[in-house]
Design a protein around this nucleic acid. Structure first.
Lengths: 211, 211
DNA sequence: GTGGCCCTCGACCGGTTGGTCGGTCCAGCA
DNA sequence: TGCTGGACCGACCAACCGGTCGAGGGCCAC
């Protein structure tokens, strides 16, 4: 039968296990983390983990499920806004990137699962967050087009992908970007998002006077 | 001329090992791949691997070095072009994405290493490809600004990141994107790049606010 | 008391891991 | 012809893996 809403047995014991496992899985991946290491990080014995979770896969799945849900609700906040399309997009980009930066462990964990090819343990689960976000953003851009604030010729999906990709790329490579002198915004995600959305809105080409 | 000048012993034996290891490491990651599996995939005995490589780490490093070099030369082709800025950017984006799609194993392998946090085995090695690409693209956009074809107000680094991020995102999620009805270009990278570069050039906002 | 009921644990299991070792095969060369 | 050295392998090793088991201990109802 199906589980009803929320996992029934989330006590203090399993919570500490989940926390420890989440960090380790996010940092090193499924295979590189042993149950012994998780137990040690949680401050309990390895056998005790098996009192709460039947096996390693189930533990990983529980961690992923928890992370996916948390990440989803976190990202959901990005689409609650109003105003002009420009304001909405600015708010969306900023909230989205802030959400990613707020819980980097969750993001890395979920992303790791999405990118895995060998053994997709719960790909759909990990993808659901992106799915909602993407659909909502596409809808949002489409509304902007209908209201005439955005050009009708553009593909909303391309614009949505660019916005999300820009944020994800910044999140994933912010440490690397810090090393480049060309990058002035590596430590300032808000400035980055501001520049990015303005660039997306106005384009990089010099406007043609005879348009 | 078969001598590459760097690695002294690249014979037929080690080549097959590197090929097999590259595929397995790219698909499943370092820890999930056993030396036995690599030997089996290469059609040799496990002990024979140790005739060419001192240990698993050295083998992984050799695979990563080879992949990084190949990927770098592959990406290098993207920056050789001329014409107007618009043409150059279109060519760059297209070549870049084609390069990614041409050798997905290399890309996944290198990207996996970049994203790893627990044990960065050769992060700098994996990042060098992106480094060159990014610097060249920034320079390219800066030239366009000096020639007046691109707006002077934009940050070249932001534009460069958006372009690369858009391609990388498409590459990494093309399988997922196929499931969305909003996405018409999931099987057509050229169409995607065309739309993306045009969007970047002209922006998504209507040029004249509500008249 | 004492019997159940969760937690918690050390000790243990079979299997797999990265890595080693002694030895075989065979082309090249004297 | 015999020797040499690189390519190659089956068998083996200690360590570790995920997972099991039986036993303790605190706690509450009786």
């Amino acid at each position: 039968m199906q589980d009803e809403g929320i996992e029934p047995n989330i006590g203090d014991g399993s919570r500490r296990i989940l926390d420890a496992a989440e960090e380790l899985f996010a940092d090193r991946g499924f295979d590189a983390v042993s149950m012994h290491a998780i137990a040690q990080a949680a401050g309990i014995s390895k056998a005790n983990i098996y009192h709460y979770f039947p096996n390693k896969d189930a533990l990983y799945l529980a961690v992923l499920r928890s992370a996916s849900e948390n990440l989803r609700t976190l990202l959901q906040e990005a689409i609650n806004s109003h105003g002009s399309v420009s304001e909405i997009l600015h708010h969306f980009a900023n909230s989205h990137l802030q959400a990613l930066l707020k819980r980097p462990r969750l993001v890395r964990l979920v992303w790791r699962e999405i990118l895995e090819k060998g053994a997709p343990r719960a790909k759909e689960l990990a993808e659901q967050g992106f799915s909602e976000l993407f659909s909502n953003l596409v809808e949002l851009i489409r509304n902007g087009q209908e209201r005439g604030e955005l050009r009708a010729e553009i593909d909303p999906a391309v614009a949505a992908i660019l916005l999300i990709a820009g944020n994800v790329f910044f999140f994933q490579h912010r440490d690397t970007l810090r090393h480049y002198p060309e990058v002035a915004f590596a430590n300032d995600p808000e400035a980055y998002d501001k520049a990015m959305v303005e660039l997306l809105l106005l384009g990089i080409a010099t406007p043609n006077p005879s348009s």
